[in-house]
Amino acid sequence: MNSPEIERLIQLLAKLPGLGPRSARRVALHLMKKRDGLLTPLAEALGAAAEAVRTCSVCGNLDTRDPCHVCTDPRRDQSTLCVVEEVGDLWALERTNSFKGLYHVLGGTLSALEGIGPDDLSIAALVNRARRPEVSEVILALNATVEGQTTAHYVTDRLTECDVTVSRLAHGVPVGGELDYLDEGTLTAALRARRPF
């Protein structure tokens, strides 16, 4: 029904997170209608990003230079490493503007079901970074999922050979959350992580 070019565009768009085949068709149609204002600039931006963006060899962030801007910023606290699963998690923490240390992107979590083991993640590189004398704390900012917690325990075990304090992000009641709407796991974590008022 559609030309091969349009079908290829729809198939590629459908591979993006949150887009299924129908949503991909709608996006493709919208792009075609806004060819000059959206499709052409988007194609140029994608080409430029594919050409210029690379993975930081130190932390795993995405940037146009290697090492990335975060790793080379002299104002960063060199004593603290924040471990995240994916680059999107790093970007989320950076948006808060509250963490001034360095990051380490694991590239995922351990998952026996998906066949992802320790060698598939950058855990060995993390241990090497944590051995540096200036590093005193490693913060585990991993998702509160079964895989995230499994990965956190494994990483903690691997870091016992390093002279660092290992901490993790607090879990519990979100700001603006109402107790009646929270699940039992979140409430249990909040009670365990309570602190003086």
Rank of each mutant, 00 (worst) to 15 (best):
T96V: 07
E44T: 09
C82G: 00
T80K: 06
C56G: 03
G115I: 10
P67L: 10
S111W: 11
C59M: 03
N128Y: 08
G60Y: 02
D73W: 15
A92G: 12
L81P: 01
P133S: 13
S136T: 14
E137P: 03
D63V: 08
D66Q: 09
R54Y: 04
I123K: 02
A112Y: 08
C71Y: 13
C82V: 10
R75E: 14
L121S: 00
C56K: 00
P74Q: 10
S98V: 14
A50G: 14
A49T: 09
L121T: 03
Q78H: 10
N128L: 09
R54K: 14
R95G: 00
K100V: 14
S111D: 08
A124P: 01
V84D: 00
A125V: 04
A45E: 11
E85M: 06
G107R: 02
G115W: 05
P74I: 12
N97H: 14
R129L: 13
D77T: 09
L121N: 01
W91S: 03
C68N: 00
I123E: 03
D63C: 08
P118A: 15
V70N: 04
L42G: 11
P74Y: 10
A130N: 08
R76F: 11
E85L: 05
A49E: 03
V84I: 14
T72W: 09
W91D: 06
L102K: 07
L140D: 05
E94V: 05
G115F: 07
R76P: 01
T109F: 06
C56D: 02
L126H: 01
L121F: 03
W91A: 10
N128T: 12
V84P: 00
D63R: 05
A49C: 08
F99W: 10
C59S: 02
D77E: 14
L46P: 01
S122A: 14
H104V: 05
H104R: 12
V70H: 03
R131F: 13
C56E: 00
L42S: 09
D73R: 14
I116H: 10
A48K: 12
